[in-house]
Computed example of a mutant assay.
Amino acid sequence: MSTVINVVVALHIIGIAALLGGFFAQMKAISAGEGRMTPGMLHGALTMLVTGMVLVGLNEADGAEVNHVKIGLKLAVLVVVLGLVYVKRDEERVPAGMLGAVGALTTLNIFLATVWV
């Protein structure tokens, strides 16, 4: 079971990398006022959502203790990120603050996952 969990964790990290990498790739465009939500950002957020739910299920099935408050907060942050990316996915230009919020909330999710024990 631990191998399956580790594979899903790796997929979860790939989703985070796609979302945050899409944000970082837009940094120059953001400063020029031409930033946009890329398809990779949407796919990364969806990957995070699916693999996160699978991880909770696998860990509970394996008998591990799951901090439901932490998972609930991470889910809420991810739903906000996913909503922002999904709603603005077809627009040519997205306000810099909105892209900044996606980057900041994704970073917050990373810190929630790693710092909150």
Rank of each mutant, 00 (worst) to 15 (best):
G72W: 11
V66Y: 07
G22N: 09
L19P: 03
G103N: 03
F23V: 14
T38L: 12
R93C: 01
S31E: 13
G40S: 03
A61G: 13
A113C: 08
I16E: 06
V69N: 07
G97K: 11
T107M: 12
L99N: 03
A45M: 01
V66M: 07
K88D: 02
T106Y: 01
I14F: 13
A32V: 06
V56E: 10
V80D: 00
G15Y: 05
L108C: 07
V94H: 05
E60K: 14
P39R: 10
R93N: 11
I13P: 00
G72R: 12
V115S: 09
G40F: 04
V80N: 00
A61V: 04
L99H: 07
L99D: 03
S2R: 13
P95F: 06
L78P: 00
A61I: 04
L99A: 05
M37C: 10
M41Q: 08
M27A: 15
Y86T: 14
L49R: 08
L58E: 11
M27D: 01
G97R: 12
L46V: 11
A25K: 14
L58D: 04
I16M: 14
I5D: 02
L99G: 03
K70N: 08
I110Y: 08
L42S: 01
R89D: 01
F23T: 09
G63P: 04
L11R: 04
H43Y: 12
L49D: 01
Y86I: 00
V50F: 09
V4I: 15
T51C: 10
L78E: 01
N109G: 11
I30E: 10
E34N: 14
L84T: 00
